[in-house]
């Protein structure tokens, strides 16, 4: 943001051109695996939502977490370079600021203690059935939940209080999706994911990954704003658009796999030429996720592109099912 925006809307938001707005909608359509025709539908829905009175209230709960999914959230970024295009495109961050009202988020919110509780109570009372609940971190159930308390209440009781009244519950990351790290063997605290902690939730979305990619969170919300419905999901709540295909099938290194060209040692000639990491333990052939397509940090890179195998972090119970991480899979 070294260059000052040349123009601004009357409300102070950066000027957004129709072309760049469509570009964003197009990117979302691609992420959501929708036909190109939906670009216009999404753009229209976003414009309507933008003009409507209220932003979508969000309650973001953190339990047994590392805050990595929140950090992923604030890495939401724009897709095109303003220096290159001369335009200040609407970025994902604008979507988050202009379409969402993050009313409770312990890492970011101004108030603490009693005042923060007030924020939580206000959104639940004012927007019953309308707020989005995002959950980060697992929920401990052993010893009646004493392993995570907030304002003297267990994480479990807070989840039971907040989640059933939400319009949608989004498990952000592997820990809230299936228990994640804390639930890895021997699971000392009886940690579980959201679905096991609060059974029977309607409108549940799981975005596993360590952390979850914010692109998929935004795409889920854009889908909700566009179609007034959550994206189609598998039995564990994972949207097909993000978890419907194997990493291996879309991997940029797949041609090397097909050609039998494998990295044999870190830093060898094949490694330097971007050959397949299968023999170095890559779990791409057993992992369904859209990393190769959407990548990370504004499309800068992703794990395999940077030379390390996939650890399967979007796979169920991956700490136990995908490790040892450097042991080659028996077959693809």
């Amino acid at each position: 943001m070294n260059a000052e925006p040349k123009e601004a809307l009357s409300d102070g938001r950066p000027q957004i051109s129709r072309r760049s707005f469509l570009k964003l909608a197009g990117m979302m359509a691609v992420t959501l695996a929708l036909p190109k025709v939906y670009t216009g539908v999404i753009a229209k829905a976003l414009e309507t939502a933008s003009a409507s009175a209220g932003r979508l209230p969000v309650v973001w709960l953190e339990f047994q977490d590392c805050t990595g999914d929140s950090e992923s959230f604030i890495r939401a970024t724009q897709r095109t370079d303003p220096v290159q295009t001369g335009l200040t495109d609407p970025g994902l961050i604008d979507l988050l600021l202009d379409y969402l009202s993050v009313d409770y988020h312990e890492t970011l919110m101004a108030p603490a203690g009693a005042q923060s509780e007030l924020s939580l109570n206000n959104v639940m009372q004012k927007y019953p059935g309308q707020y989005i609940a995002v959950v980060e971190g697992s929920i401990p159930t052993a010893q009646n939940g004493v392993f995570c308390t907030i304002r003297g209440r267990t994480a479990l009781s807070i989840a039971q209080q907040v989640l059933p009244g939400a319009r949608a519950v989004i498990a952000m990351g592997s820990c809230s999706s299936d228990g994640g790290l804390a639930a890895a063997a021997p699971n000392p605290t009886g940690a579980v994911g959201v679905k096991d902690a609060v059974p029977g939730l309607n409108n549940f979305v799981a975005l596993p990954g360590c952390p979850a990619n914010v692109v998929n969170l935004v795409a889920t919300i854009v889908h909700l704003l566009t179609f007034n419905a959550l994206p189609p999901r598998d039995a564990s709540g994972r949207p097909y658009f993000a978890y419907g295909a194997e990493i291996h099938d879309h991997c940029e290194r797949r041609p090397f796999f097909n050609a039998g060209q494998f990295v044999q040692a870190w830093g060898d000639a094949g490694h330097r030429q971007g050959w397949c990491l299968f023999k170095m333990g890559c779990k791409g052939p057993k992992t369904d996720h859209n990393c190769p397509q959407v990548k990370w940090n504004d499309g800068t890179s992703w794990c395999v592109a940077s030379g390390h195998g996939c650890i399967g972090c979007a796979s169920p119970k991956f700490w136990d099912t995908m490790s040892p991480f450097y042991k080659a899979l028996p077959s693809a």
Binding site: R75, C210, N297, T300, S301, C303, S306, H308
Partner: peptide, 19 residues
């Protein structure tokens, strides 16, 4: 979110770069 792309260049992603 721009500066931390150093992690993505060297480690594929941030948070939790993998290199």
């Amino acid at each position: 979110k721009e500066i931390i792309k150093i992690h993505a260049i060297l480690g594929g992603k941030n948070p939790h770069p993998q290199t």
